[in-house]
Amino acid sequence: MESLVLKDISITLGQNLVFDKLSLEFNKKVNTSIIGPGGSGKTTICKILNGDLKYNGSILINGIEIGESNNYLLEKYVGVVLNNSYNKNSLVIDELFAGLDTCNLDYEEEEKRVKKVVKYFKLQDILEKRISSFTIQKKYYIKIIKELIRGCAYIVLDDIFINMDLKEVKRIISYCKQENITIINITSEMEYVLETDNLVVLYNKNVAMVGSTIECLKEEKLLRRLGFNLPFLVDLSIQLGYYGLINKVIIDDRKMIDAIWK
């Protein structure tokens, strides 16, 4: 199976040991959310995958270990969108083409890709606008699209969705599904974990829990102890379960209402 694997990753930043032999596997076509308390290394994972930090351990893409000689594979397969300031003065259209700079494509292919995302994300009216004139939400939207246009196998988002409209988030997820791009979504907003199949919980320099999102969320007490809340409908399902009104986790409002008031 195609996969992206972090194996026995250890990393120290300054005086702080961030990860102690952390291992994670992200299978292709399985979207994953990563949550963790502040300082648990969520952004560090992004920076490692972006090639920004040196680490001990290995990264494997489809079984091939990434080293200095084939580091380009990491850039090719994994797109990373960091949650840092994005205040470019360039036009949207220029930014989209700039996203393809490292892809070594001919102009026709570049144009084809740009046209495709412009149509899908309905960017026609803003192509000639400057990034710096946008709201934070819009800037992050463009920043993700700029990464998606490269067509990498995985996209890693460093708590980006929290800055965006839900409609835009849904559109990005649906584009990734259509284009077979696997999402690794690092998030501090629990509602977004429901958008992915798997959940990874980081704690104390390593992985505290990993598995299907709904199964992990059922570990309500553990999650609360680690400082997380539950998505509204999951919380409602579990609490109403204690009252004997619901016997499973329901994540759709209408289905929930029908289940309560039969």
Partner: peptide, 30 residues
């Protein structure tokens, strides 16, 4: 959610902002 309950089932839940209060109200109503 509360607005949808009112619209879909005609159940007049109060204007809760706390999920614990909502859960108790749902239990009482059912």
């Amino acid at each position: 959610f509360i607005n949808l309950v009112r619209k879909k089932k005609g159940v007049e839940l109060d204007n809760y902002i706390d999920i614990k209060e909502l859960i108790k109200a749902i239990y009482r109503d059912v």
